[in-house]
Structure formats: C-alpha cells, structure tokens
C-alpha cells in the first residue's frame, strides 16, 4: 500500500490529477455558463413573443374600435340626411363615449393621434349642443350638408390615425 502511494508521489500522478480536476471544473463551469445563457435567451425570447402577441391584440382591438366609430359616423351622416334630429343627441353622445374610451383604454396612442381624437370629441359635443338647441325650440333647422361636412372631417381624422397604426404594424 505504502509502495503504491510512493509510486504515485514519485511519478507525479497527484499533479496530473489536480490538472485533470481543474480541467473538469473549467469544462463544467463553461457548460453551466452556456446553459444559463441559453435559458436566459430562451426566457427573453418568450418574453418578447408574449409582448409582441399582446401588442398585436391591442392593435387589433384599436382597429376594431376605430372601425366601429367610423361605422357609427357613417350612420350619423345618413340620419342627418333623413333629418332625424330627435335621435341625434343620443348618437352624438354615444360616439363621444366611444372616442373617450378609445383614448383612455389605449395610452400608447401618440400625442398627435390623441389630439385628433380629442378634437373629434369636441366636434361631436358642438354638434350635440347645436341639435339640442334646435330641439329645444330653435327656429332654423340645422343644415344636414354642413353637419355632414364636419362629420366627414372627423371620419378623415380617424382614417388618418387608423392608417398610421396599420402602417406601424407592418
């Protein structure tokens, strides 16, 4: 037994074992680092994919909300032509609520887009006030052509925002 130990010491097996141990430790360390790096980048990829999926859902929701607002505005134009003034105040206020909800539920809209929506909200408030005054006993009936010119301008604004959102998505 003593002879065997003596041989190991004399032939430098201990040094070799130390070097081999060090190599194994270094390889193990490298494998661990690679493993950590891989799992980290996988987690980041998953996070990015989740973010992109969420953004796509929000964009789809914005596009759907805008489309329904534009449809409601087209309906308002038809009702103006039919001079259905009695039902208009409710339509205007419903449209305003839709536009307010678009703004409040999508904080990512940029300042320019928010300004366009904000001015549309104010325009529908003015339309409502004008028609309410007429319904309260005003003598002159509102001009459907003039009112539709204003509504068309609001549709154009929403289209501008919508196209910009769509092109950002592409």
């Amino acid at each position: 037994m003593n002879q065997t130990l003596q041989n190991i010491i004399e032939q430098g097996w201990g040094d070799l074992a130390s070097i081999a141990g060090l190599l194994v430790a270094l390889i193990g360390f490298a494998i661990t680092i690679i493993g950590v790096w891989k799992s980290r980048s996988a987690a980041e990829s998953a996070k990015k994919a989740a973010y992109e999926a969420r953004s796509a859902i929000v964009r789809t929701e914005i596009i759907a909300n805008f489309s329904s607002a534009v449809t409601a505005m087209d309906e308002v134009k038809r009702l103006h032509r039919a001079e259905a003034w009695n039902v208009m105040p409710d339509r205007y206020s419903s449209l305003r609520r839709t536009l307010i909800s678009i703004c409040s539920s999508h904080p990512n809209l940029n300042e320019e887009h928010r300004k366009l929506i904000q001015s549309s909200i104010a325009q529908f408030r003015e339309l409502e006030s004008l028609v309410e005054s007429f319904l309260a006993g005003g003598k002159t009936s509102p001009s459907s052509a003039k009112l539709n010119k204003i509504v068309t301008a609001q549709i154009d604004k929403l289209d501008e925002v919508l196209n910009s959102i769509k092109s950002e998505a592409e």
Binding site: E111, R114, K115, L116, Q118, S119, I121, A122, Q123, E126, L127, S129, L130, P142, K146, L147, I150, A153
Partner: peptide, 20 residues
C-alpha cells in the same frame, strides 16, 4: 383652428384639451 357646427365657434386642440 377648426370650424365647428356652430358658425360662431372655433376649436383648437392642445395637449389633452380642446379650446374653443
């Protein structure tokens, strides 16, 4: 500024506010 439904009222938008 923008014209509104009322012929004697005009509108502009600044930040999150409309001014008439």
């Amino acid at each position: 500024w923008e014209a509104t439904a009322s012929p004697k009222k005009f509108l502009t938008t600044l930040s999150d506010y409309s001014v008439l």
